[in-house]
């Protein structure tokens, strides 16, 4: 490849010097926002029993038929919505536990 590098030793060394003078709080505009989430709940083994005699584990399942078809194309269309010519996702409904029922009626 014949592309000439646009970076020179001076530019790279200069960038390191610049980085050294930057406050730790400085973040490149429009480039990054650093976030930190708390302690992971995931991956906890315990020796307790769960929910007793009635729930998901004992429900009959048939993944090949209609039993779970409400998770269909509509569900994600419903979550993704258009506003001002742009497609938005989420809004209040996205984690509304009633949403699946709404989908089921439509589906």
């Amino acid at each position: 490849m014949s592309n000439k590098s646009v970076a020179t030793a001076a530019i790279v060394a200069g960038a390191i010097s610049a980085a050294l003078t930057m406050s730790i709080a400085v973040q490149p505009a429009h480039a990054a926002k650093i976030k930190c989430y708390g302690v992971a709940k995931a991956g906890a083994n315990d020796c307790a029993a769960g929910p007793g005699t009635t729930c998901a584990g004992t429900a009959k399942i048939d993944f090949q038929s209609n039993a779970w078809k409400f998770v269909d194309a509509k569900s994600c269309d419903e979550v993704v919505m258009k506003m001002d010519g742009k497609t938005f996702m989420g809004m209040a409904e996205s984690s509304d536990t009633n949403l699946p029922e709404k989908m089921m009626k439509k589906g």
Binding site: A56, S75, V79, G90, S94, S95, T97, P100, E101
Partner: peptide, 15 residues
């Protein structure tokens, strides 16, 4: 789970 909603996630997770 939060994006798809509780019931959708339950179904997919069960599978």
């Amino acid at each position: 789970a939060n994006i798809m909603g509780e019931k959708n996630f339950q179904q997919i997770a069960r599978f």
